[in-house]
Simulated scan of single mutants.
Amino acid sequence: MSSAITLREITKVYGTFTAVDRFSLEVERGTVFGLLGPNGAGKTTLIKILTTLMRPTSGDAVVEGHSILTAAKKVREVIGVVPQENNLDRYLTARENLVLHGKLHGMSAARYNPRIDELLEMTGLTSRQHDFPDTFSGGMQRRLVVARSLVHNPLVLFLDEPTTGLDPQSRRALWDYIRQLRHSMTVFLTTHYMDEADTLCDRIVIMDNGVSLADGSAAALKEALSHAHVYEVELCGDGAAYQKILEEQPFITSIERSENCLRLTLNGEKSLKPLMDVIAGADLKRISLKEPSLEDVFIALTGKKVRNA
């Protein structure tokens, strides 16, 4: 399968700070690609470079055969962008926002009107098409932004944290729209939500400090961490007291506590017996091996909890 996006040694430097450091990547056409990382990792900088809003300090990227350096106008013609903010024109109705986008891309009314009808139906906004965005909920505004990005039938869709701040129902609705786009175009997604990436993405790259730390499917990334031997221990006794004891044990690499439940990462299977020796049998209520989640992979690689701000 040919590549829709190719990054070649992309670097972006601000003074003495390197936001993106010789970042190379290929994204296959017709896939949903997820870029994950904590705030400050370089995700938004990459999005701005790929959407021609920012020039890299060095390196180049090609989007559907067009260089961001020498053919930026062509790149803008083949991409759709859903930014982090709902940057709708508040003085235009929902339909007028979509019409304006079609006209900006040189579409005739005969082309954009049927397309707009289709998108309004897909996003459930047909009955509100003549209302102003300020009267919409946050989820409805987000759906309109997605619809706007699709008016000109882009080959590549960039979604920069598209569901941040939405309620669970609105997030699920947007997931459904993204699923409908699968295979008809290439989707480049950044998100803070691990369940979102796990559900939607064919391939995931986790980055931090401007470089790639891991690359693969969600299943492959979780499988790579499965050797970490993470256990959940529920105690009848004082969890805080046992936490202090266990923190001194050399066979435990990390420990987290929630009241009387402890989450432990052991050096290996051989560490299970000494763990049981430390915990008095009468105080042990439950112990179970925990399958690693995508968030576990994220934290193991970046050392940082997933956060929205």
Results as ranks from 00 to 15, higher is better:
Ser2Met: 14
Ser2Asn: 15
Ala4Thr: 11
Leu7Tyr: 00
Thr11Met: 07
Thr11Gln: 04
Thr16Arg: 15
Phe17Arg: 12
Val20Ser: 06
Val20Arg: 01
Arg22Ile: 00
Arg22Asn: 15
Val27Met: 06
Glu28Asn: 05
Gly30Ser: 04
Leu35Pro: 10
Lys43Glu: 12
Lys43Gly: 03
Lys43Arg: 05
Thr45His: 08
Lys48Glu: 15
Thr51Ala: 09
Met54Phe: 08
Arg55Asn: 10
Pro56Cys: 07
Thr57Ile: 10
Asp60Leu: 08
Glu64Cys: 15
Gly65Pro: 14
His66Glu: 10
His66Gln: 12
Ser67Leu: 12
Leu69Ser: 14
Lys73Arg: 15
Lys74Tyr: 04
Arg76Lys: 14
Arg76Thr: 02
Val81Arg: 02
Val82Asp: 05
Val82Phe: 05
Asn86Met: 06
Asn86His: 12
Leu88Gln: 05
Tyr91Arg: 12
Leu100Lys: 11
Leu100Trp: 12
His105Ser: 10
Ser108Cys: 03
Ala109Asn: 11
Tyr112Met: 07
Ile116Ala: 05
Thr123Glu: 01
Thr123Phe: 07
Leu125Trp: 02
Thr126Gly: 15
Gln129Lys: 15
Asp131Phe: 03
Phe136Thr: 01
Phe136Met: 03
Met140Ser: 01
Arg142Ile: 00
Arg143Tyr: 01
Leu144Tyr: 01
Val145Glu: 03
Val145Lys: 03
Val146Cys: 02
Val146Met: 13
Ser149Ile: 00
Asn153Leu: 14
Pro154Ile: 03
Val156Trp: 15
Val156Phe: 13
Leu157Ser: 10
Phe158Val: 04
Leu159Asn: 07
Pro162Ile: 02
Pro162Leu: 02
Gly165Ile: 07
Pro168Trp: 02
Arg172Val: 07
Leu174Lys: 02
Arg179Cys: 10
Arg179Thr: 12
Leu181His: 13
Met185Tyr: 09
Thr186Cys: 08
Leu189Tyr: 04
Thr199Tyr: 14
Asp202Arg: 05
Arg203Tyr: 14
Asp208Thr: 05
Gly210Ser: 05
Val211Trp: 07
Leu213Gln: 09
Ala214Phe: 09
Ala214Met: 10
Asp215Phe: 03
Gly216Asn: 09
Ser217Arg: 04
Ala219Arg: 13
Ala224Asn: 08
Val230Leu: 14
Val230Gln: 13
Tyr231Met: 09
Glu234Arg: 15
Gly237Tyr: 00
Gly237Pro: 00
Gly239Val: 09
Ala241Thr: 13
Tyr242Leu: 09
Tyr242His: 04
Leu246Cys: 07
Glu248Gly: 03
Ile252Pro: 12
Ser254His: 12
Glu256Met: 00
Glu256Leu: 00
Ser258Cys: 00
Glu259Met: 03
Arg263Pro: 08
Leu264Val: 10
Glu269Tyr: 02
Ser271Cys: 10
Ser271Leu: 03
Lys273Ile: 08
Met276Gln: 13
Ile279Cys: 06
Ala280Pro: 04
Arg286Phe: 09
Lys290Val: 14
Glu291Cys: 01
Pro292Leu: 11
Ile299Arg: 13
Ile299Ser: 11
Thr302Leu: 03
Thr302Ile: 11
Thr302Pro: 00
Lys305Cys: 01
Arg307Met: 05
Asn308Pro: 00
Ala309Phe: 12
